[in-house]
Design a binder for these strands. Structure first.
Lengths: 207, 207
DNA sequence: TGAGTATATGAATGAAAGTTCAGGTTTTTA
DNA sequence: TAAAAACCTGAACTTTCATTCATATACTCA
């Protein structure tokens, strides 16, 4: 993605008055609602605006184009989960490995489940919308926080912490995505929490 | 997805003569090539037809609509990987856990890497195109084969083989997808193979 | 209160894409 | 070899959608 292309994702205008703050907020929410209602290709700017109770013109005052809208919505969501994971890591330095993994897994799943539907809807648009860019950014934040935490754990001396952390990220993000996208009923989430935590502990000890 | 909707994904006509077999083949390949060239939303039926060296009309003789085309291409790819995994499982009954996991992981990654670009391109369309349907179907095949294999391994008596197998599937599919979609250089794939196999072995023993 | 700024409107524009179909060519069949 | 069946063509039709802009309303502050 070129620099010019990135610029086009920036907001066109920042809300000044409170009514426009509310408008932008409403547009954010409406985007997700529309995304949930149908296939992603039925997400049109007009539909989003209608759902938000404003006109298309208003939408275009704050977002230079449709992609920027998706980008913004995705970013907001990922920053939320990143924050959750960073907090979980920071709060568990020097804990036993079992506690670390249990906390990290559960806070991450919690963050994705706060609004399960939103998470699922956003997976669908992550590929477009410069999603890779945001994903890479948040991945780095995850890995930094996790590395800091794991350096306070007692791991096998042979451990390649860098790759280990990356593997943990791939595993968490991947399994949770797979789980949410499948038609697995909510009660299965409990099993996922358990098994994922166990799996990661076993891996850390074995490396 | 309703029954009527499923019907609309079925091929409109099956090729009889060899030239039309070649045509359909060309359309399959062209679809992937177009998908690789640009963003998924630039995948047009006209573009695919052009690339395949036929006219749009011809395309519509064999595929009732665009979605059916994507469905068919995705299906072909997933059946390939399913076959690879089934073979790997069948060939390793009664082996030590380490061998089982090593083989399964490596044959699965191999299948995805035969044409790395194709795999990546198809991830992008898996969400549309009734992709969930095919994914569920192949998941079941994966899990059946893996269950059969693992029942010949000596696992901890407490093991819940059913969920274990599912967890293994989520982990493999998820990490490999994450790896392929990221910008990780090919040399990192070796590390993934190693760590993924180790991780799964550790998990099986710990459950 | 009134000028200046921020915000909202929504019909109109133009480009893009999915799909059809009437008419042609090639292959098979009898 | 002639009719039938399979196959191919691509301009034309239709719908859908992103985006703009001239105009109107609401808010702020001096």
């Amino acid at each position: 993605m070129t620099k010019a292309a990135l610029l086009e994702l920036e907001p066109r205008k920042t809300p000044q008055q409170s009514r426009s703050v509310a408008t932008v907020e409403a547009i954010h929410d409406a985007t997700i609602q529309v995304l949930l209602k149908d296939e992603p290709d039925r997400l049109t700017t007009v539909r989003v605006a209608e759902r938000a109770g404003v006109s298309v013109g208003t939408l275009y005052q704050y977002f230079p184009n449709k992609q920027a809208l998706l980008f913004a919505v995705l970013e907001r969501h990922l920053l939320g989960t990143a924050k959750a994971l960073e907090d979980a890591c920071a709060a568990n330095h020097f804990q036993p490995l079992e506690v670390m993994m249990d906390e990290v897994v559960n806070r991450f799943i919690d963050a994705k489940l706060v609004d399960r539907d939103t998470s699922v809807a956003l997976y669908r648009i992550a590929a477009e919308a410069g999603g890779n860019l945001i994903l890479e950014r948040t991945r780095k934040r995850y890995e930094t926080a996790m590395t800091a935490m794991l350096q306070t754990a007692n791991l096998p001396a042979s451990a390649d912490v860098n790759y280990m952390v990356h593997m943990i990220y791939l595993t968490m993000a991947g399994t949770i995505r797979g789980h949410l996208e499948s038609s697995a009923p909510p009660r299965m989430t409990r099993k996922l929490r358990e098994h994922l935590a166990k799996l990661l502990v076993a891996y850390c000890k074995a490396v």
